[in-house]
Design a protein around this nucleic acid. Structure first.
Lengths: 335, 335
DNA sequence: TCCGAAAACGTTACCGCTAACATTGCGGCA
DNA sequence: TGCCGCAATGTTAGCGGTAACGTTTTCGGA
């Protein structure tokens, strides 16, 4: 008994209905101008009539290209990455690529697992949202010889393409902005100390040290960031350093949570305490008072990443590069 | 000249190294207990040494199963769906399936396009986050004979499996809760009037009508929901209906935005105005005052969806079913 | 009229893997 | 001794496409 086919409509079905060979049908779908108009019209009609859906797996297996790119983000719920995703998606879709998303949960091991999985799926490239990977993951990526974009932060040793911003410089810049605004007893609060947060912290220290200020008011935790955690961290800090006059929170979630805690304590922001966040999420512009923050060009990072990867996919040779997309400090009511 | 291979390590390479046929290697990877221990150990060693990554496309093409399921959500940035996603992901991963995510941008046409795309990728099932689809999408899904779960809201005519909650009953419940709390001039504000929001609105009307109250204080817009929009809508409502004593916002983003606007206007919540949201996002529990909301079992919906789809994938015959996952009203400080 | 090149379409041979069936070898049992 | 059954492995024939190259058709110009 022959292996039963899946029941799906195939190229062959179209070909038989039209009375041509399946190669012609395949050609017609991929390079319509290479097929005569009469045949093309009849094929189009048959495709329509039979609701033909091409089998990408077969195509990919045969051609060696899957027309898909993997995008790995740490967290789906974190809206920081949804903007990156939008940028990547838009650019790649235009070029005919499908984006397959995975989330690593901020774990390099999970990232490794996903890289493995998506390589098995035959993706044509990767967009990663970090520059830190396991050794095995790096080996896999290098061996696969696929275009790889590492986004968000900058690195001196990109695997391939690197698009992001200097998190340390940004941390320093917001520190300097707080100092310029007259604050002197500036705290830092951070959660989930991934590499980027560590860089921001280092930048904050740079700024304070350069101004001869104390960097002791620093409260961190490995726990994942959340609104409530922002409140908790702020409470802890107010207890330890009651004289604190400003806090740079490592991200906007913490900053918003800290703001809510201030409201709960009837602590005037910025009168009694100034707050600053990082990323420029929607919420920073909606609270009362609005939150000072570092606006990161997440959409632009995604767009640039997709542009570069498409270029590479279309033949430009591999050539490590680094793209600094900058950032912008937006001083709002909270400082 | 023979077609050059991709350069990737294949089953054949493993087989040659070990000195068995590639079927044995394939078998060893899929059903290790069916291969003798000596051979298994040597195969494992070879797989390790050569960094073999199976080609899923080839496997899927040959077996007719891709071990992947598509999950379509309206929006990635909307944290409502990230919980669903987590639930789905967890359950499916355990069963050995990979989740491929797509976002429809609240558009049935985009949903249709994605269904088409993922069918081309050969997914083994779909988890959708709505019960509304285009005719063509429905036809595709029916013809593909794949397990399909429609989530979030309930419907009388599920395509296959339906897991969600009765949005109208939930809307009515929160309306009744506000009435029970003593409010009489209750408003509704809604953005992006998708089907679920319309249902919640209808439920709100049910409650008010049943209590003999006016349902005129209703402000809606097709614009996408956001914190700022919550503020804008509230401003508009306060202008039109200055006597309003409570507002049910169709989701938590709007409710939080409305709360921020109240703070800006120095309007006491709940003293001068009560606020209620919908979904039970983190933020509702972090603001000051905390926000009353309808907590929806998003995680449980995702878990249930994955459970049912796995069941179906493992052979249970197709049999339309409807699963009401309920909801919970959490009265907090804002009412 | 005939030639030759380009356009239009077909044949063949895979891509890497797996379902189905075939074969081999070995121990147990009548 | 001979036959059966089972465990372990191999052979064959695809899955549904596409690259590469081969063949036929068309048509303008010498």
């Amino acid at each position: 008994m022959p292996r039963r086919s899946s029941g799906r409509v195939t190229l062959q079905d179209i070909a038989e209905r039209v009375g041509v060979s399946k190669v012609t049908v395949s050609r017609c779908l991929r390079e319509p101008q290479r097929v005569s108009e009469t045949v093309r019209l009849r094929i189009d009609e048959a495709v329509e009539a039979l609701d033909y859906i091409p089998n990408r797996q077969a195509g990919a297996l045969s051609s060696g290209r899957s027309l898909s790119v993997a995008l790995l983000v740490p967290s789906i719920s974190n809206s920081v990455f949804s903007e990156v995703q939008r940028g990547v998606d838009e650019g790649l879709r235009e070029a005919g690529y499908q984006v397959l998303m995975g989330h690593t949960g901020y774990s390099v091991l999970e990232e490794e697992r996903l890289i493995d999985t998506f390589l098995a799926y035959g993706v044509d490239g990767f967009v990663l949202s970090s520059t830190r990977h396991t050794d095995y993951a790096q080996r896999l990526l290098n061996r696969a010889r696929l275009p790889v974009v590492e986004t968000m932060e900058l690195t001196d040793n990109p695997l391939d393409i690197n698009v992001g911003l200097d998190q340390r410089v940004a941390g320093r810049a917001i520190g300097e902005a707080l100092i310029a605004a007259g604050y002197r007893r500036i705290g830092f609060c951070g959660a989930r100390l991934d590499y980027r947060v560590q860089q921001r912290l280092a930048g904050w220290e740079d700024a304070l040290k350069a101004a001869g200020l104390s960097t002791q008011r620093c409260q961190t935790t490995p726990r994942p960031s959340s609104y409530r955690l922002g409140g908790e961290l702020l409470s802890a800090m107010l207890e330890r350093w009651p004289d604190m006059d400003a806090v740079f929170c490592c991200n906007d979630d913490l900053a918003a949570g800290a703001l809510f805690e201030c409201q709960r304590r009837r602590l005037d922001v910025p009168g009694q305490l100034a707050l600053a966040g990082f990323n420029g999420l929607d919420i920073t512009d909606a609270t009362w008072p609005t939150l000072t923050t570092v606006i990161t060009p997440r959409r632009a990072i995604g767009e640039q990443a997709s542009r570069l990867i498409v270029e590479r996919l279309q033949g430009t040779p591999r050539d490590p590069s680094r793209h600094d997309m900058g950032f912008e400090i937006d001083l709002r009511q909270s400082t």
